[in-house]
Design a protein around this nucleic acid. Structure first.
Length: 808
DNA sequence: CTAGGGTTAG
């Protein structure tokens, strides 16, 4: 550094200072070209200034402060600022900008407000308007815009671009945008590339608003694009991504094909557009072409293409890309590592390789929230809730996605209470407002618990929070109302939704099927096909169950065959299970066995369970024993098999076999899930066990039940004591029947709920045969509707009949 | 000193 050793004669001082100033200015300029700005370099230059006793003039100091801000040292820069006797407008604007981009809009405004009017300029207004736009204060931007015009500051192209991006935060922004467009044309900036780009971008945003016809606005955007005198990279990408955002891949591709530059951003946008639309092949094809044209991949390309592999479970393709990255990418940046590793986590877990996903996660030296959320999803997806929970607790800064994944994860694994607990915790968590997905999770939790009151409250809150039109939340409402026994409310949600996806249809079809309306389920399925909604695997599972419950054998078989013939879906074991169930319920055992033998895989649990269930209905003991034996081998600890088999023996009065089975359970240590039923009264859940003595009002319930049974017997009710599995005297048996938990819960509801109100009772396992019969008579005696949801389905008793048509 | 595009988690 030769200049430091120059002789310091008086004459030379000014020269030295000038030389130093030039030197530092060029150093700082060099530094500002680095991205991101390195804070150590800035500190070094500053230290050098102090060491050489150089007192920077304001423009050098301004640049220094700007660099400090950009390298993350705003606080220190502010100290320098506060020491300045009269900071000029450039210094002030530096801080307005710095505070704005670090999210501290208040501080930015403070600097702006303490800036005297006579030194303000358009630039400082621009800086604060941008700050408003970035910190979601659209109205603030508009106020500043009006203010600057009042004080005669002329808006320039920066002002217009910032305003346009800020406006979309304001209600009814479309009309504001039109005004602004007029003003831009009048101001003569209507042909400035950056301004037209911003206009295009705003038209694109308007087009995706639900209240307009998108093609008209996209047409206007396209016109602007076609007529602009000079297009830069951004112009191309804005219009291309605009089309993609509005689901118009055709036009996106059209513009893209007219583009000469090898603009990596445009390629990435199109790739991710294809992936989102499910056109994985096209995405892979573009990736290949990029490679041929020697366009450099960046992290966006990789995340796009890895996402494509993940969504189609193309494990080997994905692994190849992973290997390619390892071989070719040297010195990856932080951002590169974040996004690519996160995409790899998702690739591996979606391909069923949880271990590999975990390896990627563990090897990441630094993780961001997406990494945590991705690994959380992986564990939730395979149902490892405890592990997922321990990840969840480790996540330092949770966002609404973290919460909603965990909430719906609990709900999907039957942990309704935990789901609701988390939802309430989320609300008390400072920076996390529930989003529509977390509402959906909480609503499904209510479905699991069959808590209608709570579910209705959440529905109300959902509307209050403005998520009424959310697909996922509405879909969860359909399921919740159905599982709480109020099918009509499911239907009214379904009917009033303004957009439906396959989940909506599946949920509604399933709801009808579970409530025993097989015919209506089939009608709705046919309507779905008519509206060109492509049925998926789930659709077929639900429609097959519906046919089975409604005894629609031929129909069900036809749907089963159409899966592979028309929709290219290979039936899985679960589909075969439903088909076997359908056949066995109808007593077609020969066909069922024939189907099992022709299946492309060895029969497993779902198949044998379906067979056993059918045998129980038709008293086919030989086949039933065979199925039960297989199940004893496959799932020896499952209580359901033993109970079904012992019920079959009981039906035939073979009490020695009944006790043999019970003995088997004891020897093998199989625990019978204790039966319990519950009912919601006054926002409280009341649980009853068999022969309950714990509930405070149980004595009243027994007495009332006695009166009811007396009246029921007059109508012809005969207690069916074969459902008592113990060998005891008849009178005792009758008493044992009258203490079943579902009877207690129903009776309690009749006592406590307002007259005429529907009774909704829930039982953890299948309803007992005598109770099923008894409720028919009971509904007649009390003249009320009784709905019972058991482990599998719904029974709606009205005027002596059950909706299940005795298919249960 | 001020503006604008592509990405991964449901």
């Amino acid at each position: 550094m030769t200049i430091l050793n120059e002789p310091t004669t008086k004459l030379n001082i000014t020269n030295t200072i000038r030389a130093l100033a030039n030197f530092y200015a060029s150093q700082l300029l060099q530094c500002s070209k680095q991205s991101p700005t390195s804070s150590s370099t800035v500190r070094m230059i500053h230290a050098h200034m102090i060491g050489s006793n150089f007192r920077p003039q304001s423009h050098i100091l301004n640049r220094l402060m700007d660099l400090y801000c950009k390298s993350g040292n705003i606080t220190y820069a502010r100290q320098l600022f506060d020491e300045m006797p009269q900071p000029d407008i450039v210094a002030r604007t530096t801080f307005i900008t710095a505070y704005s981009s670090s999210g501290e809009l208040k501080l930015a405004r403070e600097v702006f407000n303490t800036t005297p009017l006579n030194i303000r300029d358009t630039v400082c207004y621009n800086a604060l308007i941008t700050g408003c736009a970035h910190n979601s204060d659209g109205n603030g931007a508009i106020e500043l815009f009006c203010e600057m015009k009042r004080y005669d500051f002329r808006p320039d192209n920066y002002t217009y671009t910032s305003m346009l991006s800020g406006l979309s935060l304001v209600a009814e922004y479309e009309s504001h945008c039109q005004q602004l467009h007029c003003e831009i044309v009048k101001s003569g900036t209507g042909f400035v590339t950056s301004v037209v780009n911003a206009l295009i971008s705003v038209y694109v945003k308007c087009a995706s608003s639900p209240f307009v016809v998108p093609c008209l606005l996209m047409g206007a955007a396209r016109k602007l694009f076609d007529e602009m005198p000079y297009k830069d990279e951004l112009s191309w990408t804005t219009i291309i991504t605009g089309y993609i955002r509005n689901d118009d891949l055709y036009n996106a591709r059209d513009v893209f094909d007219g583009m000469n530059e090898k603009l990596v951003v445009a390629w990435n946008a199109l790739i991710s557009g294809y992936v989102h639309k499910g056109y994985v092949f096209q995405a892979l094809e573009m990736f290949r072409k990029m490679h041929l044209l020697e366009i450099r991949f960046d992290e966006f390309t990789y995340t796009g293409i890895l996402g494509a592999c993940a969504s189609s479970k193309l494990f080997l393709h994905g692994k190849q890309v992973h290997g390619y990255i390892i071989r070719t990418v040297k010195n990856p940046s932080r951002d590169f590592l974040f996004s690519v590793n996160n995409a790899l986590i998702t690739l591996y877990w979606k391909c069923g390789k949880l271990e590999d996903a975990r390896k990627i996660f563990d090897r990441m030296l630094i993780r961001d929230l997406v990494s945590w959320n991705s690994i959380l999803c992986a564990y939730v997806d395979v149902g490892l809730i405890e592990e997922a929970m321990s990840f969840f607790n480790e996540i330092p800064e949770k966002n609404e996605l973290t919460w909603s994944v965990m909430i719906s994860g609990c709900a999907q694994n039957g942990l309704g209470e935990e789901g609701l607990k988390l939802f309430n915790q989320m609300r008390s968590y400072n920076n996390c407002q529930p989003c529509d997905y977390s509402f959906a999770g909480a609503i499904i939790s209510c479905a699991v618990l069959a808590s209608l009151d709570h579910g209705r409250q959440l529905h109300a809150q959902l509307i209050q929070s403005g998520f009424e039109s959310s697909l996922s939340a509405s879909n969860s409402l359909i399921t919740m109302y159905a599982r709480c026994g109020v099918l009509q409310d499911s239907q009214s949600v379904f009917r009033t939704m303004n957009a439906l996806d396959s989940v909506s249809w599946n949920s509604m079809i399933a709801a009808l099927g579970q409530h025993g309306h097989g015919g209506q389920a089939v009608d709705l399925f046919e309507q779905m096909l008519k509206e060109d909604i492509v049925p998926d695997r789930i659709t077929f599972l639900t429609i097959l169950s519906s046919c089975s419950h409604a005894g629609l054998v031929d129909q069900g078989q036809r749907y089963f065959n159409s899966m592979s013939e028309l929709y290219n879906i290979t039936p899985g074991e679960d589909h075969y299970g439903r088909l076997i169930d359908l056949l066995c319920r109808a007593g077609k055992f020969t066909e069922a066995i024939d189907t099992i033998q022709k299946m492309p895989f060895n029969p497993g649990v779902p198949i044998w369970e379906a067979l056993l269930g059918g045998c129980r209905i038709h008293g086919n003991i030989e086949l039933g024993i065979e199925a039960a034996e297989k199940l004893f081998e496959l799932i020896p600890q499952h209580d359901g098999t033993y109970i079904l088999l012992s019920n079959m023996y009981a039906d035939l009065g073979k009490w020695s076999d009944v006790s043999r089975i019970r003995n088997m359970m004891r020897v093998r240590g199989v625990k019978k899930e204790p039966a319990c039923s519950w009912i919601e009264v006054d926002n409280m859940v009341h649980v009853f066990l068999v022969d309950d003595t714990k509930h405070p009002e149980v004595q009243k319930v027994y007495k009332y039940l006695e009166e009811l049974v007396f009246k029921m017997k007059k109508l012809g009710y005969v207690p069916d004591t074969k459902y008592v599995l113990h060998d005891m005297e008849n009178e005792q048996k009758e008493y044992a029947l009258s203490t079943h938990s579902e009877k207690l819960a129903v009776a309690y509801g009749l006592l406590r709920l307002p007259s005429g109100a529907m009774i909704r009772v829930f039982k953890n396992i299948r309803i007992c045969g005598d109770c099923h019969n008894a409720f028919k008579f009971m509904s007649q005696v009390v003249g009320r509707v009784i709905v019972v949801r058991d482990g599998k389905r719904f029974h709606r008793f009205e005027n002596g009949k059950c909706s299940c048509g005795n298919y249960w």
